[in-house]
Design a protein around this nucleic acid. Structure first.
Length: 536
RNA sequence: GACCCCUUCGUCUAGUCUGGUCCAGGACGCCAGGUUUUCAUCCUGGAAACACGGGUUCGAAUCCCGUAGGGGUCGCCA
């Protein structure tokens, strides 16, 4: 924490562009963002640095995806690759190599480590001159740092002082051979960059705690001021396993084996049999294969990366809200909040120390609440965008009014932007595809109880709808239903439930008025006729 | 294996620094009831935890020691 609120706080998020932005990384970025924005005085900044010293595994695609996902979440940064307004702008046309795509008001860039070699060389030379680094016997230009023979204490804002005994940390590589030349290793580059960029607080995952003594020793050897550290707990799956891409592979593999998907490959997805076999026999965790299997089996892979959650229909505000609570809380019973609240309240002294398990059910609740709280028009537009990408059939079959009614029907019911597609699949089914011969218990009961009076009413009410519901609106249909039931002294459910069964094949639908509104006259009557025909 | 970190309901956590107000509070989930023409929403209620063992103290979830369990690091990955 800054000693007084007028001190600038400079934090950073420094991902390696070797894959997508993971939820754990997103939370780290979030805390760093909030701490700099909320706790720092004038001159504070949150910066983004791309740690691409692993030339073989780094890619521009990953860089773009990480920037895109950070922006989708609503995080912005003061220095680094340019921070664009619209997350969608980080597409293939975005060139990380273009100097114009840089945000560097203080002139502390570049923000890609692969472009900072001169800076590192200067520091290597300092160590060499001081006799604190030496070349490896194996040669090739690799350099090792000579660990000092003393206890090293890391001052950590959440864990306290952590001391590692002398001799416990071995000399380590600070310059490595890479395709295309020599590169600093992570340990060296992170120290040099944080120092040169003036980073005051390093908030990062606890997996780095054991590395911190190396970094502290480097700061001392290089003569730089050390930052304040804050190592935050890790996030795991509910079963305690790591939240890695491996779990996606695991789920896909199991499903494929259960489905007997092993002899034909997945030619339609361009996956030859030997690749499928290799994947199934755990030779690799190739995500391309995992995704192909998921598509083939219509299987949902577990969400791990921020992009996964976006594609599954989570709102950024809900994801962020949930993530913020994994390892931090405001100290009162407030659990629902936005970025501005987090920025104002976040502090390191309320950060937790123990690892957390990612609870899908709780995230569902945050997301469902966030969706329900959305303005109807906003939700409709978001659902429209999601469906355009994932479920275009709904847009093909529904006009704007029907889609708006559909969105409003599911706004209080959906936990994700994707769920209306499952829950409301019957709206876009072919009329003939509603399976009346395979009804669940409740649906059967609605048709058969009291000697099938429900079906009798349905037959009668069908004609009422046909003759009197003009123009066709859900409200009008509902009014007619109400009058019909009142006249005969029967409960609404007696007639409404058979209608639900007729139009959807189940008793679970939005309100009758909304349902008939969305479905429209022709399809409603056709489905009722189909049920009547099937039931006699 | 060595070193380091952690340990409150199934899960996320408040409370621990400044021992008594805690027979431990909130949230998700679960169970029961109510509202609703179904579902969802919403409302009410309920079950559910201080890892274990010693010690200090009039008094310990809170302080000390030990044990157990979990996690991390020990890469020319980051």
């Amino acid at each position: 924490m800054p000693d007084d609120a007028s001190q600038p706080v400079i934090t950073r998020f420094a991902p390696s562009p070797t894959g997508a932005l993971h939820v754990g990384g997103a939370r780290t970025a979030l805390y760093n963002w909030a701490f700099a924005k909320g706790r720092g005085g004038p001159g504070s900044r949150f910066l983004l640095r791309i740690e691409d010293t692993d030339r073989a595994r780094s890619s521009d695609d990953s860089t773009r995806a990480i920037l895109r996902d950070l922006r989708w979440l609503g995080l912005d940064w003061d220095e680094g690759p340019v921070c664009l307004d619209d997350w969608r702008s980080y597409d293939a046309s975005f060139d990380p190599d273009d100097p114009a795509n840089t945000l560097d008001p203080r002139g502390v860039g570049p923000f890609y480590q692969s472009k900072r070699l001169d800076l590192y060389n200067e520091q290597f030379q300092k160590l060499l001159d001081a006799g604190l680094a030496y070349e490896d016997e194996a040669g090739g230009g690799a350099l090792r740092f000579k660990m000092p023979d003393r206890d090293i204490t890391v001052i950590d804002e959440v864990l306290g002082e952590v001391t590692v005994p002398a001799g416990q940390t071995e000399d380590f590589v600070i310059r490595k051979g890479e395709s295309g030349g020599l590169m600093p290793t992570y340990h060296f580059a992170v120290v040099v960059d944080d120092a040169l960029m003036g980073v005051t607080h390093v908030i990062r995952g606890q997996e780095h705690l054991s590395n911190a003594p190396k970094h502290v020793a480097l700061y001392d050897a290089l003569g730089f001021d050390k930052p304040t550290y804050a190592h935050i707990p890790l996030i795991f799956n509910p079963d305690g396993s790591k939240m890695s891409k491996r779990v996606k592979a695991k789920v896909a593999r199991k499903a494929a084996i259960d489905a007997g998907l092993n002899d034909n490959g997945l030619p339609s997805a361009g996956i030859p049999n030997d690749e499928l076999r290799a994947f199934l026999s755990k030779d690799n965790d190739d995500l391309t294969v995992a995704r192909a299997i998921a598509r083939q089996l219509r299987l949902a892979l577990p969400e791990i990366d921020v992009a996964d959650f976006r594609e599954s229909g989570y709102l950024p505000t809900a994801l962020l809200n949930y993530l913020a609570l994994l390892g931090w809380n405001p100290g009162d019973d407030i659990e629902t909040f936005d970025l501005a609240f987090l920025r104002d309240k976040f502090d390191l002294d309320r950060a937790g120390k123990s690892n957390a398990k990612f609870d899908r059910e709780k995230l569902f609740r945050f997301n469902a609440d966030a969706i329900a709280a959305l303005d109807p028009a906003v939700f409709r537009d978001q659902l429209h965008e999601h469906f355009a990408a994932r479920h275009p059939r709904f847009l093909d079959l529904m006009n704007d009014n029907a889609f708006a009614a559909f969105a409003e029907a599911y706004r209080p019911r959906a936990r994700t932007l994707d769920e209306p597609a499952q829950l409301g699949g019957f709206f876009v089914a072919d009329d003939g595809d509603i399976a009346y011969d395979n009804l669940d218990k409740n649906a059967r009961k609605a048709l058969t109880k009291n000697d099938g009076v429900g079906v009798t009413h349905l037959a009668t009410f069908r004609d009422v709808l046909d003759q009197q519901c003009d123009p066709w609106t859900g409200a009008k249909a509902h009014e007619l239903l109400q009058a019909y039931c009142d006249e005969r002294g029967v409960g609404m459910g007696v007639v409404a439930q058979p209608i639900r069964v007729a139009v959807s094949g189940s008793t679970v639908t939005p309100g009758i008025d909304q349902t008939l509104d969305i479905l429209g006259r022709d399809r409603t009557l056709a489905r009722i006729d189909n049920l009547l025909a099937a039931h006699t």
